[in-house]
Design a protein around this nucleic acid. Structure first.
Length: 689
DNA sequence: GAGGGGATTCTTTTT
DNA sequence: GAATCCCCTC
């Protein structure tokens, strides 16, 4: 969309300015504020304006007192965008919430240690309460006291063995721990319950040990660390993760007036971007800071920017914000700078909190909005709309799907996604949750081990093809330092000549030239493919060992091995063009006219042409969207709070409001009694293409 | 045929 | 980690 050609009336320009003036008044009155605006209102623009306003008014004073404006965001992407749009200034500190919190609390190790000890105590209490009350621990409680103690010692002594086999299926697990199994037969009636009991017993002991070590100030137990890479605490190793970081901050700020003062003194202004996504803990902490600052006569102004209806993550505070912050000044913006008025009015119907948007523009280009209730193939629908909406390279069509699996399938590399999905590694425990990130992450550092290796191979292959590729993207510095033009040309010719219709062929060819006396070539290959892999066979074994972890010499698994080997072989024989599709996806460079996203993944974006493919079912909820359509334009905001209806509503709101010009919703399931509801929002439902 | 337990199967996203 | 399917046992 080219918005430069659209006109805004004088009246609307003035009204839009008034929003900034309202914020300015809040600052003048020293009162915190919340800026609520629907999708496409220009929220980030208002945030930047506010920052500039504060700099203009209080910049000199801030500088003199060595103070800063703190601007916290939810994602790294948002941080970068704000930094870019704001330009360079030393007065504003932009960072993600977690990064910023850790920077503030990390120096206060003494308090952190105290908080960590409290956490360990809490966990121990919780676990022993579970052992004495939960139904799953019944068999444990039935043991005689001495028997119980000897079980504790036995399972703790064998904890390594236990953890190694914990994820296996019941029969293998029983076999692996048969010694304990035979000693305490009653506990083993249910393997599931046994695992819960054993977990609790082992953890309690581990936590008790850590507490002792912390009191003795043993090496490695004097500092709490935060690790942003994993989403789970490792309390025993003194490592906390994202959620616990927020908890620790909250209790530390509660406890220490000194800490409150440090923060208030440093940051008299705190702006929060996308506040609806931040955890209630953060809002509570900020509220506490503000109250404290007021009590000692300091200024601490907090500006929240967001939209409660775009809260699509469970952990976000969403509509509960106003329960925590009861009397905050509210600044609303009713204008929409993104979509056609047809789309805006649909979005207004889906919202149930009273906020109604209107377009800021005088006239918007023609817009097409439809709702289909059909069962045709996606491709048919895409073909028809591509034709009618004149889709081409410059006017792309964006299709929204509910699941990543569907996105992978529609993007053409289902075979690759499914190979990983069906590998043993991702079937254990909660690992399947990692699948999305490991296969589809646009951040290559987050890809899985095998995926990363394949990515490197493909990346090298495709970069070689492009003339604008920098040498340093292909080689390490010292590889090319002593090369002349001729040897470099020869090397590149040799590398470029490698080809193959499948990954297997390509890797085979690569190793045909390997270890044949061309040192430069060898170094190059070793850079892309780790040293231990020197043939397709070794690559196969590497994939097998990583994703299926069976070894050849293990008895009884031979059958599994050859079966899995067949899977890997099949995988390596997938056509290269399919790998190319995957590569394009993870490098965000899809070459087609049609691009697929998950609903969630589109947050923050806007597209001219959107098709939303919708089913009733989402996750385990068979009626997820069907139930929403039943009450689509009812306005019972309070009643829906924290229900599936609210999640479905917010998700649909986010999806619909991505579209600027053309929007088509395709619902594949029965509409039954919902037709009139749907039509009151989307217009006439069409039952054929 | 009821009940219990084991096996299998799920959604999204960020830090 | 929870819902649901599936199989076994009484």
């Amino acid at each position: 969309m080219n918005y430069n050609e659209l006109t805004i009336s004088q009246e609307n320009q003035l009204l839009e300015q008034k929003v900034i003036d309202d914020i300015s008044d809040c600052i003048k009155d020293e009162s915190s504020w919340v800026f609520d605006a629907g999708a496409g209102a220009g929220k980030t623009y208002a945030l930047i304006q506010t920052l500039k306003l504060i700099i203009k008014k209080s910049g000199a004073k801030l500088k003199a007192h060595n103070q800063k404006i703190l601007c916290i965001t939810y994602t790294n992407v948002a941080t970068n965008e704000i930094k870019e749009r704001l330009g360079t200034t030393t007065l504003v500190e932009v960072s993600t919430i977690h990064e910023c919190i850790w920077r503030i609390i990390a120096p206060h190790q003494e308090l952190l240690i105290k908080t960590h000890l409290e956490k360990l105590d809490q966990e121990i209490k919780y676990l022993s309460d579970s052992l004495s009350n939960e139904e799953w621990a019944q068999t444990y409680r039935e043991l005689a006291v001495d028997k119980r103690l000897s079980f504790d010692e036995a399972i703790i002594a064998n904890s390594k063995l236990y953890y190694r086999h914990k994820g296996e299926r019941a029969s293998d697990f029983r076999e692996a721990l048969h010694e304990i199994n035979e000693l305490f037969p009653t506990l083993w009636r249910s393997v599931d319950k046994f695992r819960k009991i054993a977990d609790a017993v082992i953890k309690i002991r581990e936590y008790e040990d850590v507490i002792v070590k912390m009191h003795n100030k043993e090496m490695g137990f004097t500092k709490v660390k935060y690790d942003a890479r994993f989403n789970n605490d490792r309390l025993v190793q003194m490592i906390i993760s994202h959620d616990t970081l927020l908890d620790y901050m909250h209790s530390m700020v509660c406890e220490s007036d000194l800490l409150k003062q440090v923060v208030c003194d440093k940051y008299p202004f705190i702006l929060v971007d996308e506040y609806q996504d931040t955890s209630p803990q953060v809002i509570k902490t900020l509220n506490m800071l503000e109250k404290y600052a007021n009590s000692i006569g300091h200024i601490c102004l907090i500006g929240y920017y967001g939209d409660i209806k775009q809260n699509i993550y469970e952990s976000g505070v969403g509509g509960n914000f106003y329960d925590i912050h009861e009397n905050i000044k509210r600044v609303e913006k009713v204008f929409n700078r993104r979509s056609s008025s047809e789309i805006i009015s649909i979005a207004n119907c889906i919202r149930n909190d009273g906020l109604q948007q209107q377009s800021i523009f005088e006239k918007f280009p023609p817009s097409d909005v439809r709702f289909y209730n059909i069962n045709n193939e996606r491709q048919e629908i895409i073909d028809k709309l591509s034709d009618e909406w004149k889709i081409d390279k410059k006017n792309k069509l964006h299709c929204f799907e509910l699941t990543n699996e569907k996105v992978a399938e529609q993007s053409g590399f289902a075979e690759i996604y499914n190979f990983f999905k069906n590998s043993e590694w991702y079937k254990i425990g909660r690992r399947y949750k990692l699948l999305r990130e490991h296969v589809l992450s646009l951040d290559q550092n987050k890809l899985g081990i095998v995926q990363r290796l394949l990515f490197n191979i493909l990346d090298f292959k495709y970069r070689l093809k492009i003339d604008s590729t920098l040498l340093l993207e292909l080689f390490r510095k010292n590889q090319i330092k002593e090369m002349n033009i001729e040897s470099l040309r020869n090397l590149i010719d040799k590398l470029q000549s490698l080809s193959g219709n499948t990954l297997r062929e390509y890797v085979e060819q690569t190793f045909q030239h390997y270890d044949k006396g061309d040192d430069k070539y060898d170094k190059c290959i070793e850079y892309v493919i780790p040293e231990k892999i020197k043939s397709v066979e070794e690559l196969t074994r590497f994939i097998l060992n990583t994703l299926f972890y069976f070894t050849e010499d293990e008895d009884g698994t031979k059958d599994d091995y050859s079966e899995n080997e067949a899977k890997v072989n099949q995988f390596l024989d997938i056509d290269m063009s399919i790998f190319e599709l995957w590569y394009n996806f993870v490098t965000n460079s899809c070459s087609g006219n049609v691009v697929f996203h998950t609903y969630h993944g589109t947050k923050g974006w806007e597209f001219d042409n959107v098709i939303i493919f919708m089913n009733s079912r989402f996750g385990r909820k068979n009626q997820f969207f069907a139930d929403l359509l039943d009450v689509l334009n009812d306005k019972n905001e309070r009643e829906e709070r924290e229900s599936d209806l609210e999640s479905a509503r917010n998700l649909l709101y986010v999806a619909v409001t991505r579209a600027t010009k053309n929007l088509c919703v395709v619902y594949f399931d029965y509409l039954n009694g919902k037709i009139s509801k749907v039509e009151s929002v989307f217009g006439k439902v069409q039952y054929s293409l």
